[in-house]
C-alpha cells in the first residue's frame, strides 16, 4: 500500500520527534517555559556527529555517546548561566521566553560560524550534507531497509524504558517526579529541587543531541535544521500534553507519522500539494490541537476513561 521508503521515513522521523518532544516537555516541566533553543541542540548533535566523522573518521552511530554528553552539557550550561539566574531573580514566563529566543539566536549563529570555520579548514561542504551514504542496508521481511530505522527505534525504546525505570524505581527518580509536581513541598522534605532541574535540562539536551545524530541519515542538514525541527517539536509536545512525558513520546510519534504520511497522501492527486508544504502540516496540526484539545491527548483520556467506568 504505502511504499517502504515512506514508512521508513515516517518511523525514523517520528522517533526523532519523540526524543525531541521528550526533552522539550522535560524542560517545560521544570521552569514552565517552552525552550525556543531546544531545536538548536539537535543541530548541535548533527554537527558533533559530522565533525567526528570528518575529523576523526568515526562513524556517526559511534558518535552517539559524544553527542549525548556535548549537547547535554550545552543545555545544562544554558540552564545554569541563563535560565536559573533569571528565574531566581523572579523573571516571569515572558522574560524567560525572550531569554530562550536569545539563547536560540546565539546557538544557531554559533553553529553557523562553526560550520563556516570547519568548511574553510576542511575545504569541504559543511552544509546540506547527509549521512545516508554511510548507512547500511538491512533485509527484513523481504524488503530492504536502511539501518537508521532500526537504530533510531531501538534508541527510542531504550530511552523510554530506562527513563521509566529511572523515574519509577529509583529514589532520585521519584524525587524528580515529586519536585516537578510540587517543588515547594519537595524542597520542604529536603529534596534538592535545583539538582532535579539541572538533571532535567541535561537530559533534555542529551536526548536532542542523540536525535541530531540520526537526523542527517534522512535529511540534508545545516545549522538551520534546528529551527525547522523546533516547530514540529512544539506540535508534538502540545499534542502529547505539555505536562506529560509519556505523552511527549506519543505526541512525537503521532506528529511524525501525520507529517510524513500526510504529505505523501496530499502530494498525490487530487490534491497534488507540493512537498515543500511538509512543515506546514505540523503547523496546521499545532493550530488544530490548540483549538480542539489544548491539553493534548493525555488530557482527553481521562474523560473517556471515566465514561467507560460509569458504564
Amino acid at each position: 500500500m504505502l511504499p517502504v521508503e515512506v514508512i521508513i521515513d515516517a518511523i525514523t522521523f517520528s522517533n526523532l520527534l519523540a526524543l525531541l518532544a521528550l526533552g522539550l516537555t522535560l524542560t517545560y516541566l521544570t521552569l514552565k517555559v517552552p525552550n525556543f533553543a531546544h531545536g538548536d541542540l539537535v543541530a548541535a548533535g548533527v554537527y558533533v556527529a559530522f565533525s567526528l566523522h570528518k575529523l576523526c573518521g568515526i562513524h556517526p552511530y559511534l558518535a552517539i555517546p559524544v553527542a549525548f554528553l556535548v549537547c547535554g552539557a550545552i543545555s545544562l550550561a544554558s540552564y545554569l548561566l541563563v535560565y536559573r539566574p533569571l528565574w531566581r531573580r523572579g523573571a516571569g514566563i515572558v522574560t524567560l521566553m525572550i531569554a530562550s529566543i536569545a539563547v536560540e539566536i546565539v546557538l544557531r549563529s554559533g553553529l553557523h560560524i562553526y560550520a563556516d570555520v570547519l568548511s574553510s579548514h576542511l575545504k569541504t561542504f559543511t552544509r546540506g550534507f547527509s549521512f545516508a551514504w554511510l548507512d547500511w542496508s538491512v533485509e527484513m521481511y523481504g524488503r530492504t531497509l536502511t539501518f537508521v530505522v532500526i537504530a533510531s527505534t531501538c534508541t527510542l525504546m531504550a530511552v523510554t524504558i530506562s527513563l521509566y525505570l529511572f523515574l519509577s524505581k529509583t529514589r532520585f527518580g521519584t524525587a524528580m517526579r515529586a519536585a516537578i509536581e510540587n517543588p515547594s513541598l519537595a524542597s520542604s522534605l529536603g529534596i534538592n529541587v535545583d539538582l532535579v532541574y539541572a538533571v532535567s535540562w541535561f537530559l533534555a539536551g542529551a536526548l536532542a543531541g542523540v536525535a541530531g545524530v540520526f537526523l542527517p541519515f534522512r535529511m540534508p542538514s545545516d545549522p538551520e535544521v534546528g529551527w525547522e525541527m523546533l516547530l514540529r517539536t512544539f506540535t508534538a509536545s502540545i499534542l502529547g500534553g505539555l505536562e506529560s512525558l509519556m505523552g511527549a513520546i506519543l505526541g512525537g510519534l503521532l506528529t511524525g507519522f501525520a507529517e510524513v504520511l500526510g504529505i505523501y497522501v496530499l502530494s498525490k492527486p487530487p490534491v497534488s500539494l507540493s512537498t515543500a508544504y511538509r512543515p506546514a502540516i505540523s503547523c496546521a496540526l499545532f493550530i488544530m490541537v490548540l483549538l480542539v484539545a489544548p491539553g493534548g491527548i493525555t488530557s482527553l483520556d481521562w474523560r473517556r476513561v471515566l465514561r467507560w467506568r460509569r458504564k
Binding site: A102, I113, D116, H121
Partner: peptide
C-alpha cells in the same frame, strides 16, 4: 572565514540576556 553577521547576532543575544 565566516560571516560577521553571525557574530553580531551572538553579541546581540548575549547583550539581551
Amino acid at each position: 572565514p565566516f560571516e560577521i553577521n553571525y557574530v553580531s547576532y551572538i553579541a546581540l543575544g548575549i547583550a539581551l540576556i
